[in-house]
Design a binder for these strands. Structure first.
Lengths: 203, 203
DNA sequence: ATAGTAATTAAACAACGTTCAATTAGCAAG
DNA sequence: CTTGCTAATTGAACGTTGTTTAATTACTAT
């Protein structure tokens, strides 16, 4: 029996999340289980329920970490030109999905039994990510209304997300990064070209 | 014990797939199980393995049906104008996802343990769907090369797919159909506008 | 009718998330 | 230093899951 003061609750949480990431990188998303995590950190499965509400809670907290890592990668090395910055965001997103397909899959494809218990941290990180896109778009069209901006950012970024999804799904883009990057490039170029072309705005 | 000549193999398959769809619409994707299907058709779980290689095989065959239904919806009521046809495809795709979220989720989000055993029928249906898009794009740019056409169709359709994914995910677009349609409209307008604008092509 | 074949089943297996009574460790008071 | 209380930890149990297999049963052909 592990002693009671060996690790604090916070340490336990940290260990469990770390172990989870290790298990996922070894056995894939479907290889993650409470019993494996428990064994890896030297506790029994029941103890995990002192730290997490349930399995989905563990996954959510894992996703929070993943998302903030992604956000970090995207927000660093800012380019001056808004156009190139948007492209950079798309490539970052894609590269992240390609480098950590399992964590990415868990982040965007996991279905919680009770979606209501999504931690705020995760929702905030999503918002922060979308704001990066909106800021860049604003620079391209300073006169654009807030509402149109939101729709446009949503549309464009959904597109990038779709490319990442289908890249990992494997069939489209031969599942390789380069051809997916080509798709991001194509989408970005045409979308931005259309959006900034004189005449009517298409929000 | 169900009698041996009560149903042919093909009938059994049909019954199982029908029962599966019924279970999914009642209990959701995660409510689908071999035992439930077996019970619903009056056989034991083991018998299913005479008709399906495994659970994933059943899901794949279910997905084939779903996809061909989607393809049917998309290919009917063809509009003459290529631009409007593309939009129609997008709306169809979105509406289908919205009306049958569980089957749609199973179709695009299910991860087979062994992805190699995807039935050809499913792959063919995917190709057929993409061809609709490519044909419409060709009409917009008859001089476009086959390679550029493929990249463009992939990019555009991935974008539509991404919107559908995030609509069902619930957070973006408030999870409602109307605002997702707005996003499709935005993406389509800007993308097509950019792609058909004079000057450089962005494949 | 009987022998042989093939479909069907029930039971078993391993693994899953989750719960809970029992146990044990740590701390505080006497 | 011992005793008693509290709370962390555990192992076993429950109800699931997909899948396999030995035994049984139903049909067919001789």
């Amino acid at each position: 029996m592990a002693r009671r003061n060996d690790h604090s609750r916070e340490q336990l949480r940290e260990m469990a999340l770390l172990a989870s990431e290790s298990i996922i990188s070894r056995d894939g998303v479907d290889g993650l289980s409470t019993r494996k995590v428990a064994q890896e950190i030297g506790y029994s499965a029941g103890t995990l329920y002192q730290v997490f509400n349930n399995f989905d809670d563990l996954v959510m907290q894992l996703n929070s970490r993943t998302l903030s890592r992604l956000q970090l990668q995207m927000s660093q090395q800012q380019r001056h030109d808004a156009r190139n910055r948007l492209k950079h965001y798309g490539y970052c997103y894609l590269r992240f999905a390609h480098q950590q397909p399992e964590l990415w899959h868990l982040l965007f494809e996991h279905r919680a039994a009770n979606p209501e218990q999504r931690p705020e941290e995760l929702l905030n990180n999503i918002d922060a990510l979308f704001n990066l896109v909106k800021v860049a778009l604003t620079e391209l069209q300073p006169t654009c209304s807030e509402n149109d901006l939101t729709v446009t950012a949503n549309s464009l970024w959904s597109g990038i997300h779709g490319i990442a999804v289908l890249m990992l799904k494997g069939k489209l883009f031969d599942g390789d990064l380069q051809s997916a990057e080509q798709a991001v490039n194509c989408l970005m170029n045409n979308f931005i070209q259309g959006w900034t072309s004189q005449g009517e705005r298409h929000a």
